[in-house]
Design a protein around this nucleic acid. Structure first.
Lengths: 116, 116
DNA sequence: TTGATGTTTCCATATTTCGAAAAATATGGA
DNA sequence: TCCATATTTTTCGAAATATGGAAACATCAA
């Protein structure tokens, strides 16, 4: 992932509504949620929500898909993963001992294990 | 970590110079780098660099420490780790299978293993 | 104290971002 | 086609942020 893409992604997430949208969409995986439904659930005007969704889309963090009259948005977990790796990679290169705990904190999330 | 803190951190990293500063500081761990040296290495005027460093400081991503006439900045890896967890936690809650690969990609970074 | 060095603050200007209302566009059903 | 619904685009002022020169502040050596 390129620097400009990472900046765009961070920039997209550095806003209350957009962060809330993304987190909500993550929880809605893999079904996604329509733009109007997102606006309703987060109490944001449709036009405002649309603008935020276009920012998230441009950043690659969400992916739209038309379904009849609605446009369903899904979180792009792959993209998020790459952005995280972009940070973590540097972290590892300079200082391996930092990533140990992080890796451990994630190990509980693998499909073949229960989360606490 | 609270939402507002995460937003502040993402916002701080969503800027070319600051992202470069942070990555540079990560690689300089645990020694850190003086403000003037950062400005020189990244070819940024002192005043501009100072402003960016204060943003990163306020976000908690870097920590200043005076050493004689210089002010040494270090990356706050712990803070970065928490911010990453903030995203990953949600990711796990909704969709465990996403975190498996991420955890694996980090597992090579643990201190007791070589990196490729 | 004086001078040299390193860093931050002050300030003005330029740019970007935000939120919301109005208008425009796209889809599906009658 | 015409209408209703869903979404996006356009537009605007207000607020926040980026930039860099000059001045101020802090520290150390002599």
């Amino acid at each position: 992932m390129e620097t400009s893409s990472v900046i765009e992604s961070f920039s997209a997430l550095a806003q209350e509504t957009r962060l809330a949208v993304f987190r909500l969409l993550v929880r809605q995986e893999p079904d996604g949620l329509a733009a109007g439904e997102l606006a309703r659930q987060l109490s944001v005007p449709h036009a405002t929500m649309s603008a935020h969704l276009s920012v998230l889309s441009r950043a690659g963090l969400v992916v739209p898909r038309r379904q009849g009259r609605s446009i369903i948005y899904r979180a792009n977990l792959n993209h998020m993963q790459e952005a995280i790796r972009f940070l973590v990679r540097d972290c590892c290169a300079g200082h391996p001992e930092v990533c140990g705990p992080l890796a451990e904190s994630l190990s509980g999330c693998t499909p073949n294990q229960d989360r606490e």
